[in-house]
Structures are given as C-alpha cells and as structure tokens.
C-alpha cells in the first residue's frame, strides 16, 4: 500500500461529502480497504475514524479483508432461491472449501452470496467477474470456477481479454508519456501534446489497450486531424504508417521501453490503431 496513491485518490475528490466515492476508489485499487487507508482518509478529510469505519462496515460493497483477484457472487434472492440456488451455493462452498464472503487461500477467488441481482428470470444466477451465468446447475459450478480462475468466460468475455495496460514512451527522447495524475478506466492515462486548428493542447488516451477514446483539451470536430507531439522534447510523433481504417497519418509511441510500438490514428474520431510487440502485429 502506498500512501501517495491514497492521498491522490483523496485529493481528487471534494472532502467530507465524497467519503463513499473515496472508499470506492481505494477499494477498486486495492480490492479492499486497508486499515492505514481508512486512517489516512479520516485525517485527510477531517472525518473521525469512527465515522469512516462506520461507513466502511455499513455498506456490503466495502471489504476490510483482502479480496481475491476474481469475484464470484451467487444470487440467493427469492426467485433464485426457489429455483435451487441453495444447492448451487452449497456446491461452491464444497468445491472452493470456504464460507460465503471468504477468499480462497491462494487469493484467487472471493465467493459471496448476494440478495438479488435484478435478473430473476435467469435464476439461479451466478456472476463471476461481471460475467452472468444464467440457470446455473450444480454440475456447471466446476466449469464456472475453472473459467473464473483462467479468466476465460466464453464469447463476450473474449473481447475483454485484450485489455491490458501499456507503458508508453516517446521514441525520440525516451521519456515516459504516462500521466499518473490523470486516470482513465482506473489506469493512468497516456498524455501527449497535439497541434490542432485551434491551437496546441494536451490529448489523453487510456493506457488500457482495447479502449480508444481520445480526450482533448480543445474542442475539435470528430474528423479533425491532430499532429501528435512529445510533451517533453516537442518532437513530431507522426510515423510513416497510414491508418488502416481511414488512411490518415498515425502517431507512434514506444511501448514498454521499446519492446513494441503502438500507432494510433491521428483523426479525432477514429479508433484505428496498430500494436506491434516484439515484431509481431496484434
């Protein structure tokens, strides 16, 4: 746990009124609320530790114990219950050898029961890492656990697998383009400068591969072309490649200290991109 990270989260929000969102952000980062973090929140926001602790223990969404990498929730609401959720939960308990709310000793899976997921027609329902399994039977429990451990969740889980965080740097001066003070989707963003018709300003893109939004300082039309510049050395990042989707020039950055190259389309509204890692194009 790093104090600076937590201080960042606290200072991003507006003090006392935002205590729940601060705790949510901390929990998202650490999967649980460490004791030191709660103490820090108390001193920084001016709330008493008692109040912070009261909030943290009141809401079921917060956990004071470390949670596993994956989260499996089985619904025990009325509809799921009458459709046999009890036996499904019992099977999970047996297979994972834990009680609801606990985490496996290898810190992989946290299993919990919830009271309703609002999808009663699909019951008994089990959610693992945001993926809904409908009409779960005792027999499927094993597969769900396996899929959860491996992080594979069938068809619509597959697209998620491409999401990973990239460490981008300037190909000219080699300095990091990661902006740790500005998060997009829970990861630090990549920040470069861009020249547009209305002037030069910053542009931020998610460091998460699989998400291609562009956030700009200036308001420009969706089809505007941007000239990417390194914020450190000012060199033009435009490469020779053309976008596969709209043929516009592409901005190029080094990835993970030079093991790969990411090119993103310089057109504001285009999600065109090419990622080359160790010579292989993804």
């Amino acid at each position: 746990m790093e104090t600076a990270n937590i201080l960042d989260i606290i200072h991003k929000s507006e003090g006392k009124a935002a205590i729940i969102s601060i705790l949510e952000d901390i929990q998202e980062k650490y999967t649980y609320l460490p004791e030191e973090a709660l103490r820090l929140v108390a001193t920084e926001t001016g709330c008493s530790l008692t109040d912070v602790y009261g909030v943290a223990t009141f809401y079921k969404a917060f956990s004071l114990k470390p949670r596993g990498k994956h989260c499996v929730s089985a619904c025990l609401g009325t509809a799921c219950h009458v459709r046999g959720a009890e036996t499904v939960v019992a099977e999970f308990k047996g297979q994972l050898n834990l009680q609801p709310g606990e985490t496996t000793p290898d810190n992989e899976i946290t299993f919990e029961t919830v009271n309703c997921l609002g999808a009663c027609a699909l019951g008994p329902i089990v959610v693992s890492d945001g993926h809904y399994h409908a009409n779960v039977t005792k027999r499927e429990v094993k597969d769900i656990i396996k899929a959860t451990r491996e992080g594979t969740h069938g068809s619509d889980g597959a697209s998620k697998d491409y999401e990973f965080s990239l460490e981008a740097s300037c190909p000219q001066c080699g300095q990091s383009l990661i902006d740790a003070a500005y998060y997009i989707d829970g990861h630090p963003s990549i920040r470069i400068d861009v020249m547009t018709d209305v002037g030069t300003g910053w542009m931020r893109v998610p460091s998460l591969y699989g998400n291609f939004v562009k956030i700009l300082e200036h308001i420009v039309p969706e089809d505007a072309l941007l000239t990417p510049l390194c914020p450190h050395c000012g060199s033009n990042l435009q490469g020779e490649l053309g976008c596969l989707e709209c043929n516009a020039p592409m901005g190029t950055m080094n990835v993970d200290g030079g093991v790969g190259i990411i090119s993103i389309c310089s057109r504001k509204g285009c999600s065109g991109h090419i990622l080359t890692l160790n010579g292989a194009t993804i």
Binding site: S48, L49, T50, D51, T57, F58
Partner: peptide, 9 residues
Amino acid sequence: AKAIGFRGR
C-alpha cells in the same frame, strides 16, 4: 472524542 461509534448494520 468520537472514540466509539456504530459499526456494521
């Protein structure tokens, strides 16, 4: 003091 408070629910 605010040394004690409600916890849980």
